[in-house]
Amino acid sequence: MIYERTWSWLTAASTWQGPQGMGVRTGIYLWDCLLTLLLALAIALPLGLWIGHTGHLRQVVVAFTGGMRALPTLGLLTALSLWMGLGLGAPLLALTVLAIPPILAGAYSGVESVDPRIVDACHAMGMTGWQTFRMAELPLAAPLIVSGLRSAAVQIVATWTVAAYLPIEGLGRYLIDGLAVHNYPEMLGGSLVIIVIELVVDGLFALLERAVVARGVRLERGMAGATSSRAQ
């Protein structure tokens, strides 16, 4: 019964139209997510790559990213919002801060995961630090970098829902507003749409993650997989 009501809510034209309809809210939601991801990327990617390449600050950053995991999103959101006032500023800052650790971790662990013998060979051939980074470290680190981006993106999409509590316009409104008036079809419908968006985002990044594995490396993995499954 709840499903039927949810379905009819989801398929009703009135749900989708207007300035507070699903269409506009999805647009706002995706735009906010993209903005957050780009901001976090601009800060964390260069820093992470630099840490991976040079090894500087590694311990500090590892401790930082570990501690950040336990930092409650909702606490950060509400505190910043009281401090900075209403508007996009507080959630944008909070979500950017929370999206930095996965990107940072992906970038530095990606560069560090490159076989040190390969890096040594690059130096021995007479590559400069930059050439080693560009020709060896970056392409070989790409899958882990994207994997860090992926978890940041997934986290951002999930957390903008929570930000609706502040209150912020976007898809999260259906959950928070629906809850306030016990409109379960609206809550469930909004939740389902967000789940679909989240799975699509996750899937797209998963594809990208596969696509950036260099051909020679893919072949190597294929072989390693074949031998290990035979060994079992």
């Binding site: 390969i118 040594d120 060979a121 690059c122 021995a124 051939m125 007479g126 060896a136 392409p139 051909r215």
Partner: peptide, 22 residues
């Protein structure tokens, strides 16, 4: 040092090849 290394051939164990290049 970079110029110097470019002028001296160096062979490592395992070849030290870039796995993503032919």
């Amino acid at each position: 040092p970079v110029t110097l290394r470019r002028s001296i051939g160096y062979v490592l164990q395992g070849g030290g090849l870039l796995p993503h290049r032919t």
